[in-house]
């Protein structure tokens, strides 16, 4: 459905230090530098797939999504979505896709969201019966209720985001680019959004690329992740593979009925955290069974838990490694 080959986006950026002197100098001589926002990336996304597109701030995620949705022209390389070249902005292409940006809105600020829905119905030329049916489904899934008839400016951030999603989906797009759709939302709203996005993907068979700084979004929604840093891909594969590759250890949490010395716990694995009632250890993947058996046999364990390390830690380690590799290469 989505095919990206050698995609690049380089910007020429005016660079000027602060201060009046520098401002005056820039009147006569302007210094520029080239920023490689995206620097030759390749990947494919199959129809109906949910992919997490991850990276630190400024990694090139949003730029890639903007090129895939036709907003930006690539410096080099190619991108096709459903066989369309996005930059041609053909009607059939624009009817197939939608880019939802958590920090940009399409809702008309001083009118109720229902007016934006109606506007989109007309612009996307959605038959009235289809529009009514889809809007009913979206209203139920997103629990919009009375929200659609209040002026947008009076809605809370979470309410607005739900209406943004509904506005983005009234034409039933087959490809969804979601750029931080849960940014600024409270935890329960994030969960509701994730549930909705998953249901939309399953019911409509929509292809979905998601960027988010909330790793819970990624864990809940994306079996596959593509990681980008400084415009270059550093991983493309299953989420578990990423975790295994970057942090091949499991995390073992032990709770005790009586204080246990740190040295005794350290015999089981690398201690991440320790206090008198609880220890968190990192244990090699294939050593988990042995460690658990030893803990149960030798320590006053009342509860234990084995899980993968938090995705945030995995990601920050991956980015740190990529940076170190680049520095060595430089």
């Amino acid at each position: 459905m989505i095919r990206i080959r050698g995609l690049q986006k380089h910007y020429r950026v005016h660079k000027r230090p602060p201060g009046v002197k520098a401002a005056l100098k820039s009147l006569f001589k302007r210094d520029y530098e080239w920023v490689k926002a995206v620097d030759g990336i390749d990947f494919d996304v199959a129809a109906g797939e949910r992919v997490g597109f991850l990276g630190p701030n400024g990694a090139g995620k949003t730029t890639t999504l903007k090129m895939a949705s036709g907003l930006l022209y690539p410096t080099a390389g190619e991108v096709t979505v459903g066989g369309h070249v996005p930059q041609r902005r053909e009607t059939e292409f624009l009817k197939k896709i939608m880019l939802v940006m958590g920090q940009k809105q399409q809702l008309l600020w001083d009118l109720p969201p229902s007016e934006t829905f109606e506007l989109n119905r007309a612009i996307y030329d959605v038959p009235r019966a289809d529009f009514n049916r889809r809007l009913k489904e979206l209203s139920e899934l997103l629990e919009l209720g009375e929200l659609v008839s209040k002026p947008t400016r009076q809605l809370s951030l979470g309410e607005r985001m739900k209406c943004e999603l509904a506005a983005a989906l009234v034409h039933g797009p087959k490809v969804l680019f979601l750029d931080e759709p849960t940014i600024g939302l409270d935890v329960s709203m994030q969960v509701a959004m994730r549930d909705f996005i998953r249901k939309y993907n399953e019911e409509y068979g929509a292809t979905l690329i998601l960027t988010s700084h909330y790793m819970d979004d990624v864990t809940a929604l994306c079996p596959r992740v593509v990681v980008i840093d400084k415009g270059v891909l550093s991983f493309d594969g299953k989420l578990e593979e990423l975790v295994k590759r970057v942090r091949p250890e499991k995390r073992l949490t032990l709770r005790f009925s009586a204080p246990v010395p740190r040295e005794q716990v350290a015999e089981l694995g690398t201690v991440v955290k320790h206090d008198h009632a609880e220890s968190v250890l990192q244990v090699p993947h294939d050593g988990v069974n042995t460690a658990v058996a030893r803990a149960l046999a030798t320590l006053p364990v009342v509860d234990l838990n084995v899980e993968n390390p938090p995705l945030e830690e995995v990601m920050s380690e991956l980015f740190a490694r990529s940076r170190a590799e680049r520095e060595v290469a430089a």
Partner: peptide, 25 residues
Amino acid sequence: MRPFAAFRALPTLLKIGFAEAVAYR
């Protein structure tokens, strides 16, 4: 957008534009 579809959308665009005009009266 096909010309006919664009033409069909115009009354809705005008109607919503008018609603905005009323909001910003």
